[in-house]
């Protein structure tokens, strides 16, 4: 396959970026999208040109480090798939592919296609945990959790923190991400003691980081590589309103 790439190049967070066109030649349909970029980069290095920076690590769809908005879609055209698991057979020969970084005020560009998602970490630090220290905890089987609840909590816990929800949302809202963690703990007995504090702290931190608000378009759910459901957002709303108006 031969492709034309329009890639966002930006030196650092303070400079303005622009699109640069590259040719990707002799691409095998069996390559992953990132391997295709590897090939392009290797060609650039050979020509002593600066390679395209993009975030990636595990390349098996679980670390959440890869990103890229590909032709207007976070993680590309394939549903429930991260960019590293997207293969070139999803494209056609002679396609033009536009590659952009996640765009959000709270995700400043680090370089080219890599962005700073530390806002996500700071939200988790605000309350995304159960306050237990190491040791002195009860036996694991002293806490029985109905399977349906455990499974539902698990669905929320599968979030990989990639930020595709923010990238997809027209308001750059982080609610799917935040609600997944709040939901996981709200459903589990371990999360109960700090349930409402946590919801309040995490939502307030999310706002402070400058993410937009949810207008329920559900684009996040459609683009989430782990298929996290927007019912988590509904649950987060309930937790937050209960925290603010009922529990006081």
């Amino acid at each position: 396959m031969n492709l034309t790439l329009k890639v966002w190049r930006q030196k650092n967070s303070t400079s303005t970026g622009k699109f640069v066109t590259y040719k990707a030649e002799e691409i095998s349909p069996d390559m992953s999208f990132l391997e295709m970029l590897d090939v392009v980069n290797e060609g650039l290095v050979k020509k002593k040109e600066e390679p395209i920076q993009f975030d990636h690590d595990c390349r098996e769809g679980i670390c959440g480090m890869c990103s890229l908005v590909i032709n207007g879609e976070p993680h590309g055209p394939k549903r429930a798939t991260t960019t590293c698991q997207l293969h070139m057979r999803s494209f056609k020969d002679k396609d033009t592919i536009v590659i952009e970084p996640w765009r959000a005020n709270s995700f400043p560009v680090v370089k080219d296609l890599a962005v700073d998602r530390s806002a996500f970490d700071r939200i988790q630090q605000a309350g995304g945990y159960v306050s237990v220290g190491t040791g002195g905890v009860p036996d694991a089987n002293e806490i029985a959790i109905p399977k349906v609840i455990a499974d539902e909590a698990f669905n929320s816990a599968t979030c990989i923190g990639c930020g595709a929800c923010v990238a997809a949302c027209k308001n750059a809202s982080a609610m799917l991400f935040v609600s997944a963690k709040i939901s996981q703990y709200a459903m589990l007995p371990q999360g109960q003691p700090e349930r409402y504090q946590r919801a309040e702290a995490m939502v307030m931190k999310m706002d402070e980081e400058g993410f937009g608000s949810c207008t329920n378009t559900y684009a996040c759910e459609a683009q989430c590589p782990k298929e996290i459901k927007v019912t988590n957002i509904a649950r987060m709303n309930r937790e937050f309103f209960t925290a603010e108006f009922i529990k006081g």
């Binding site: 159960v130 237990v132 009860p138 694991a140 806490i143 455990a150 698990f154 996981q184 999360g191």
Partner: peptide, 22 residues
């Protein structure tokens, strides 16, 4: 054995049986 206790206390969602145990 302590590891499992610790992780469950943190809210790690291990697989469970219908009775609610691990």
């Amino acid at each position: 054995v302590n590891i499992i206790d610790q992780c469950v206390a943190q809210g790690v969602p291990f697989a469970r049986e219908y009775g609610g145990l691990l």
